[in-house]
Amino acid sequence: MTKAVVNLPIFPLPVYLLPEGITRLRIFEQRYLKMIKIATKGQGFVIFSAIDKNIDAANKSNLFWGSCVEIINFDQSKDGVLEVDVKCKSLVEILSTTVDDDNLMFGDVIQLPHWSQTKSPYPLGELSTSLESLFNNNPLLDALYPKKNIDNEVWVVARWLELLPVSSEIKNSFVTSQNYEAARGFVESIFLNSPSLAK
């Protein structure tokens, strides 16, 4: 893990993905098929979620960040579209961008450390069990994660942040503020059933 600047293709998509997070993408545009080709040979690509209206939010915090992902699985869907499972390796700060002839964006990026990369040996009670049952009830989600770190509270909080239906503006604040306590408190307060959790 070096703090070096690398140049990677950028995929603009409003999906919030923290380190260790996995999602399935459907790729059909020519330029993004090209991006996948480049990514498989190199160091992956960057999902940049602060597109259109969210760009204001990014501007405010003066931080353009993206999720640097690696491809962990491919498939072709029934309707013939390429489906790619990607896993977030780290967050990156996007320093500058260029656009090539195929209208594919590239960016000079540098690694951005995030609290979700720390490990914790503690499960999170209700939050862990609730997440586990969510996986059990959703085969698609379940299949994406071959290994689930339910016993790691940081991992659990990060997955819930990805899954909760709140605006990208708020989710963005958990990257720009780097405040794990606030993130955990936020998730907990949605689940609070017992007062002990609320603290």
Partner: peptide, 13 residues
């Protein structure tokens, strides 16, 4: 709950 969570968050941050 989502609204409350947001309100708390704003206080925290």
């Amino acid at each position: 709950r989502l609204r409350l969570a947001l309100a708390k968050l704003k206080v925290q941050l």
